[in-house]
Computed example of a mutant assay.
Amino acid sequence: MRDALTAVLRETCGLLVPLVCPCGAEGRLLCADCAALLASTPVRVDAACDALQLVSAARVREGPVGEPVGVDHSSLLPVHALGEYAGSLQDLVLAWKNGGRAHLVPAISRGLAPAVEAVADGDEAMLVPVPSRLSARLRRGEDHTALLAATLSRRTGLPFERLTARTGEGQKGRSARQRRTRHLYPAPRALARTRRDRAPVILVDDVVTTGATLRSCVEGLAGIGVDVKGAVVLAAARMPAPRTIP
């Protein structure tokens, strides 16, 4: 009886508001394939983010005079994503951040919750959304990353606090070099609760490209004494190359 009533309500609502998934599939606001995509196991993507790479060691050729033959890198912080920013996942990201599809947030938060818990690793970390430019928030009519961070807070039990800060230019349309030079300037009283509790931070964002935005957050927060444990994002512009076993 309940299933029949649900079906009738869905059909009735579909007459008033077309039920179309961001991928284009009709009949549901979120089709089964896209729901499964948002339920994917989060993976670490920081190795593919150029701006997050730090030189950890230099390799030299053995001999009387050591000659450098390469360097080893380590990541500034772990970053977890549900997948690559392409195909249906890209459609979902754009529908969520620019298309007013706030109903996607619960499904996104369910998918990212395990990543948040992995980064927190038992600590009472603070969830902090990467701040958007004011013009972007006004255009969208909401702060989409803050909404996601608040939903993740309810799902994981970790506290949530907004970051008040001035940011550099948006990343869209900028070159790779320009993306690596973005800066974030926290307000004088930014993250008052986080600083009072001396809590580490987990950053929440929509897409990571080079990692420049996350790096600017890490550096800006370090300037006010706040440590960043890691970040979770919905999608990554590049995925790490699969490791091969020799």
Rank of each mutant, 00 (worst) to 15 (best):
118 A>E: 15
97 K>Q: 11
112 L>H: 07
78 P>D: 13
135 S>A: 15
80 H>C: 12
128 V>N: 03
87 G>D: 13
68 P>W: 06
131 P>C: 10
136 A>T: 11
78 P>L: 09
118 A>W: 12
102 A>Y: 02
75 S>L: 05
128 V>H: 03
135 S>C: 05
94 L>F: 11
81 A>M: 11
97 K>P: 00
70 G>C: 09
120 A>S: 12
93 V>Q: 11
102 A>V: 03
115 A>T: 06
68 P>N: 03
144 H>R: 04
109 S>G: 13
101 R>H: 09
124 E>R: 14
88 S>M: 10
76 L>A: 15
81 A>P: 11
72 D>Q: 13
105 V>M: 06
120 A>W: 01
118 A>V: 07
74 S>W: 04
131 P>M: 05
108 I>T: 07
127 L>I: 03
129 P>K: 12
111 G>D: 00
101 R>W: 00
97 K>C: 09
147 L>I: 05
73 H>C: 15
80 H>I: 02
123 D>W: 15
138 L>P: 02
101 R>P: 00
139 R>N: 11
77 L>R: 08
142 E>I: 03
112 L>I: 06
143 D>K: 04
96 W>S: 01
112 L>Y: 01
107 A>V: 00
139 R>T: 14
106 P>V: 02
107 A>C: 04
137 R>I: 15
148 L>D: 02
78 P>M: 08
72 D>V: 13
103 H>E: 15
101 R>M: 01
98 N>L: 12
141 G>W: 06
88 S>G: 06
84 E>H: 13
96 W>T: 05
126 M>Y: 07
84 E>S: 15
84 E>F: 03
90 Q>G: 07
89 L>T: 06
70 G>Q: 13
148 L>I: 04
127 L>K: 01
109 S>A: 15
136 A>E: 07
126 M>I: 14
114 P>T: 12
134 L>Y: 06
105 V>Y: 08
79 V>F: 12
132 S>Y: 01
126 M>A: 12
79 V>K: 15
92 L>W: 04
141 G>M: 08
119 V>I: 15
94 L>S: 03
